[in-house]
Design a protein around this nucleic acid. Structure first.
Length: 631
RNA sequence: GCUGGCGUAGCUCAAUGGUAGAGCAGCGCAUUCGUAAUGCGCAGGUUAGCGGUUCAAGUCCGCUCGCCAGCUCCA
């Protein structure tokens, strides 16, 4: 009799026992000897089984995948002429792509969702079928499912698996839930176009997105979170808080910074400059335009002409710079460099312009003009690990300061099957990749290796930060560049007096200031910490009688270098409190006769309320401390 | 760039093909107020732009611009 070890406990079972006999209601799939399988799987021999529930990532995948099938099932019942493409789980939920003669409308979504609940309630068993590949091809051909046939024709295994629930059948690796009734609460969220297999030249399909959870409460919580994300949208908050605006008249993808935004931007840049000074960087500033031949030399013109702003100038062409690097190389090359000069760290808050395809623009997160917090480190091979370590350390210090508690590190290396697509020989790639890895190890950082994600001119480390809502944003990037030093002939004189090609590391911490502030607005939900808040304190006299006292406090705080607003408007106190609150001002000082008499201020904190009254000195101490801690 | 959706006052939103309207914000007046919206009044519009259909277009059609959800792209 087979011995089955379930979640570490051993059982002796009769042949033909199914895993589901050991599962509770929460469990939806299993890992059998390391492989994900259906609960209906029959145990034939000794094995190790781990039961999987929705709470794990794998569980969610299975759950959402089954919901995607339920969606396709409902669509097929309502619109039999629809052809099925693919329907995988994604990071949050699932989608299914359909080929339909017209796009789906919101009304369709309502109908489809209703039908999904109906099918769920039929509680159809979800069955796994194993079939010879040609048999499956024949089956789908008969069904008219041309996309499935195309997929099948590319599969190499002789046998394929299909999943069937009622009359609905789909090509699928699985596993799935045991029956449609196991799917709890779900909601279809949106429709959008998507190319078949992500290829612009292939047909455009209709994609329906959805999400599902075991319970209605979890679904509600998800929808509330989605609503919260919507409330934090930097494209709404930015203009409302006077941070930035974009104008149709000014052109798409171009940002105009408003006074409040400039306060934030300056502080972020000043902090960046301070930290970089401490880390041994030197600063330069390069022009916004330059001769096209410079970009010809760098290779950018050949690769990215479509995305560059180019204009004629006399007999030649000029470009608006899309990158700072060529200028930095000119600076590097402007003197004969000795190994004693290295590492040379040249930093620049360089504003660049790229002509992005119209459909990709998105608030501050993707714009046509932006400022990179750029730097290029020129060093020797021996210095690589130290330099990379320094950059990553610096980056993590910044992340922490802005309250990004969680982050993910990606190491992007060559696609091992297509080494010919990359510039530079194996030796230099190995030096660079091992340098990056050694730096990460030195910092004891876990990382995810991403083969094929490297840029053609070198490997890189990317740091993705998770914001307050758990969404990830790529910020820091550390890239090797084997292309530019070579093209520009950037060398140094080594100890032996020979000229040697310098190693160039390109890096940005924030990435782009625009994008970073967009992320910050959403991360903080507009509630910028005191050190960044455009207005830090609002002084609210209860009535006109305290106007004089208010002015005295105003000048006192201003002298302490605080950003203060004295609200003498002819409005009730409640109105002005509400106004300061919606403008996200961190502190309100409410002053009435009592405070005036006692030479105190009554302190109210944003979102927290009344903190009671205290002498101004005490208040000042308190907020100076808070500013210093950048809390 | 592609697919689909959208575009009315600074903002949020109304208006069967038949006189463009409300709340908030703004301005004025009254009120001088103790921890999230005081009352009254005034002003605010080439309905994104251009063209067409119609006796009549915010509404129907076409083109352009912009925005949104995705896809593709992101040095």
């Amino acid at each position: 009799m087979p011995i089955i070890t379930i979640n570490g406990k051993r059982f002796e079972v009769a042949k033909g026992t199914r895993i589901i006999d050991f599962a509770t209601d929460q469990e939806i799939a299993a890992r059998l000897n390391g492989r994900l399988v259906d609960l209906a799987t029959v145990v034939e021999e000794d094995c190790e089984v781990e039961l999987i529930s929705f709470s794990s990532d794998e569980g969610k995948e299975v759950y959402w995948h089954s919901t995607a099938h339920l969606l396709a099932h409902a669509v097929k019942e309502l619109f039999p002429e629809v052809k099925l493409a693919i329907g995988p789980p994604i990071a949050e939920g699932f989608y299914y792509d359909f080929d339909f003669k017209r796009p789906f409308t919101d009304e369709d979504l309502v109908l489809i969702q209703e039908r999904m609940y109906e099918i769920k309630n039929r509680n159809l068993p979800i069955e796994r079928l194993v079939m010879k590949r040609p048999v499956a091809i024949e089956l789908f051909r008969k069904l008219g499912e041309i996309y499935k046939v195309e997929l099948l024709e590319e599969i190499e295994e002789p046998e394929v698996t299909l999943y069937k629930q009622g009359d609905f059948i789909d090509l699928c690796r699985g596993p799935h839930l045991p029956s449609t009734g196991k799917i709890g609460s779900f909601k279809l969220l949106s429709v959008a176009g998507a190319y078949w297999r992500g290829d612009e030249s292939r047909p455009m399909l209709s994609r329906i997105y959805g999400i599902s959870f075991p319970t209605a409460e979890e679904l509600d919580r998800f929808l509330v979170m989605r609503e919260e994300a919507r409330n934090r949208d930097h494209r709404v908050l930015g203009p409302r808080l006077g941070i930035f605006r974009m104008f149709e008249e000014a052109g798409p993808g171009l940002v105009v910074w408003l006074p409040n935004g400039m306060v934030i931007r300056r502080l972020i840049e000043e902090y960046w400059i301070e930290e970089h000074k401490k880390a041994g960087y030197r600063f330069i500033l390069s022009p916004h335009i330059g001769r096209a031949c410079l970009w010809q030399k760098s290779g950018h013109l050949d690769y990215y002409r479509e995305n560059m702003f180019i204009f004629p100038y006399g007999e030649e062409e000029y470009v608006i710079k899309p990158m700072n690097c060529p200028f930095h190389l000119l600076v590097y090359k402007s003197e004969t460099r000795s190994y004693r000069d290295l590492p040379l760290r040249l930093a620049e808050l360089g504003t660049v312009y790229r002509d992005e395809r119209s459909g990709v623009l998105h608030g501050l997160l993707r714009v046509k003009g932006f400022t990179q917090d750029d730097a290029h480190i020129f060093c020797t091979k021996e210095q690589v690990v130290d330099e990379v370590t320094g950059v990553v350390e610096l980056a993590l210090r910044f992340l922490k300061c802005y309250g990004f508690e969680r982050y993910r590190v990606d190491l992007s290396v060559r696609d091992p099957h297509h080494k010919e697509r990359y510039l530079g020989d194996d030796q230099i790639w190995e030096m660079a990749e091992s340098g990056l890895i050694e730096a990460l190890n030195r910092l004891d950082l876990k990382y995810r290796e991403a083969p094929g994600e490297a840029v053609f001119y070198g490997p890189k480390i990317d740091i993705h930060a998770y914001d307050a809502l758990g969404r990830s944003h790529q910020l820091t990037t550390v890239q090797f560049d084997f292309n530019l030093p070579h093209r520009f002939g950037a060398v140094y004189i080594n100890r032996a007096g020979e000229s040697e090609e310098v190693v160039m590391i390109h890096r940005a911490i924030y990435g782009s200031i625009e994008r970073f502030i967009g992320i910050l607005i959403e991360h903080y939900g507009g509630d910028f910490p005191l050190w960044l808040a455009p207005v830090q304190v609002a002084i609210l006299p209860v009535s006109r009688n305290q106007a004089q006292y208010g002015r005295r406090i105003l000048s006192r705080l201003r002298r302490s270098n605080l950003r203060v607003f004295l609200d003498l408007r002819n409005e009730r106190l409640n109105y002005r409190i509400r106004d300061a609150e919606t403008r996200k001002i961190p502190y309100m000082l409410i002053i009435g006769d009592r405070e005036q008499k006692e030479k105190k201020v009554s302190v109210r904190k944003r979102k927290e309320g009344d903190l009671g009254s205290m002498p101004i000195k005490e208040f000042l101490r308190r907020i100076r401390d808070e500013i210093k801690k950048k809390a």
